[in-house]
């Protein structure tokens, strides 16, 4: 099926009757485009992917966890009740949600906050028809034109979008849009070529961990200023800190994004820090992305969106380490 482009806002308005709708939108103040809740009027920003990742829909930069009363000792869970449909999410970012699912929902414990938001999320993906210069998703197992993990997949056909449901949630959207859809959209256009490619095959985790003590980490990390930007804009970075805010007798425990690139991230009581310098911290970030996560969950924690390459103030580039692994075997 297909949806004519001039009926997109109508389709989104229908969605908005049953849930919040998040779209890639430019910032009012000219800031970075990001996934924001739609007011029902604004035109979506669809020219390229957003600078800020959609992870906020599932894992807000700061979220209340529970409230407490210092006098009575009462605790109250603050579980979110979110129902959100997101339109315009790209294949790399859809893949990043699969990664967040592994981290928050597997290995014995289910994160209740994430679970609630995730259950309420419907993903309507838009295939890329143009790749940015920093895109390398197809090297990381993502097809720029297809997102099998999305509930509904759409592709730009010129004057219309193809519409294909992958899941029950997606079928529900297609049904809601029934009156707006027309026949067609059977064949998606050829996907664009990525900006560049890297070699990231199944042996990369072993090849990288074998180089744990390599001096290359010194040279790679030299320029890093430890700003943490790479983690904040990465769609798959999910580390968090837990804090508290007190107001009189009441307070809230909250969690917020954190970055393993910060020096006090792993500093222990007494001052000992297992990752004392930026060399250890950068190595940990890269290895977490490209080796540790695969060893634990069987998926790479980098989806090749290129955001960190684009935004790092010191010009660090995660693909450099992958290039350096060319020709290196797993035995070091």
């Amino acid at each position: 099926m297909e949806l004519k482009k001039d009926r997109l806002l109508e389709a989104l308005a229908l969605l908005r009757e049953g849930s919040d709708v998040a779209l890639p939108l430019p910032a009012d103040d000219g800031g970075e485009p990001a996934f924001r809740l739609w007011d029902g009027v604004q035109e979506p920003f669809l020219g390229s992917n957003t600078s800020l990742p959609p992870k906020e829909l599932l894992f807000p930069r700061s979220e209340g966890m529970y409230g407490y009363n210092l006098k009575t000792g009462e605790l109250s869970d603050i579980l979110p009740e979110a129902r959100t449909a997101v339109f315009g999410i790209r294949p790399c970012d859809v893949k990043s949600i699969e990664n967040l699912d592994h981290a928050f929902l597997e290995k014995g414990y289910v994160d209740s906050y994430y679970r609630a938001r995730r259950d309420g999320l419907t993903t309507i993906a838009l295939g890329c028809s143009e790749a940015a210069r920093t895109c390398f998703c197809d090297s990381m197992g993502v097809a720029p034109g297809d997102a099998p993990g999305a509930d509904l997949m759409m592709n730009d056909l010129g004057d219309a979008y193809s519409v294909k449901a992958n899941t029950e949630k997606g079928e529900a959207v297609a049904k809601l849009w029934e009156g707006l859809l027309s026949k067609g959209g059977a064949k998606a256009p050829a996907a664009p070529a990525c900006g560049f490619s890297v070699k990231a095959d199944d042996s990369l985790p072993d090849r990288l961990t074998a180089r744990f003590d390599d001096p290359m980490w010194d040279s790679l990390s030299k320029a890093c200023i430890g700003c943490g930007c790479c983690s904040f804009i990465c769609p798959t970075c999910y580390c968090f800190d837990i804090g508290r805010e007190n107001r009189g007798a009441c307070g809230t425990a909250f969690r917020c994004w954190d970055s393993c690139m910060f020096s006090d991230y792993s500093r222990m009581a007494g001052g000992h820090n297992p990752r004392p310098s930026k060399k250890e911290r950068l190595r940990n970030r890269y290895l977490h992305k490209l080796a540790y996560f695969s060893q634990r969950y069987g998926a790479t924690l980098c989806v090749g969106c290129g955001r960190c390459i684009d935004k790092c103030p010191a010009n660090l580039d995660i693909t450099r380490v992958m290039d350096m692994m060319e020709g290196v075997d797993a035995n070091g």
């Binding site: 994160d111 580390c239 968090f240 393993c260 991230y265 940990n284």
Partner: peptide, 8 residues
């Protein structure tokens, strides 16, 4: 509980 990433 293996979520916040800190103790790896």
């Amino acid at each position: 509980v293996g979520k916040c990433g800190r103790c790896n």
